[in-house]
Design a protein around this nucleic acid. Sequence first.
DNA 1: ATCTTTTATCGCTGAATGCCGATGAACCAG
DNA 2: CTGGTTCATCGGCATTCAGCGATAAAAGAT
Lengths: 107, 107
Amino acid sequence: MNQMLDDDLANVMRALGHPVRLSIMRILAEQKTDCCCMDVTQSLPLAQSTVSQHIKVLLDAGLVERHAKGTRNCYKLRADRLAEFGSAWSGLFNGLTTTESPVKELA
Amino acid sequence: MNQMLDDDLANVMRALGHPVRLSIMRILAEQKTDCCCMDVTQSLPLAQSTVSQHIKVLLDAGLVERHAKGTRNCYKLRADRLAEFGSAWSGLFNGLTTTESPVKELA
DNA sequence: ATCTTTTATCGCTGAATGCCGATGAACCAG
DNA sequence: CTGGTTCATCGGCATTCAGCGATAAAAGAT
């Protein structure tokens, strides 16, 4: 399990630390089929260029991946990275963050 | 279980989306005794005013709480909020984020 | 009352961010 | 080849952020 570096973690957090980008993640999560920039844009009250920039931030943070499909670019979440972040978060503060089954801390 | 609003979630993420603030959280997590601004400052290569500002961001995000102790202000993590965030994260993307025991999604 | 310690806040600067419209590249359809 | 679609990128603008030193407030010590 590739341990997430601190800067990496901060990058992920910062990428998700914007309501619009959270929305984009949600949109991508809900879509069964791959969805392109235009689809995302139509779900948001923002210009295409703005959405594209937000997607780029998510790409750079490794939260999303792109693959070309004809004239359009399709995006989907990177489940591996999400899981990676999840476990990084769980181990962050000596298990202070877990709700159920509080992992016994070994001093 | 108080459902975390989207903006709240984004705020928390943004607050944690900075390496220095992550460090501060770590420092607070490791200290058994409450620790004050000065203690944190001595562990970081930053001016006291800068550290104070970062702490304020964490305070505003509800990740940290303050209580006065003589001439100094002591800080500690808010475990409740951390747990809250943990479960909010778990439920965010249809369980895509969980590593172990992928929660069965109910359509 | 005076001094010291600790901290929050102010004012400032440079850098980064968020947003937009416009433009050009890449690709498909006629 | 021409034209339409989709998208990333550029330039520009206003706002926010990150960092600092200086300062004032609050509390303890003398």
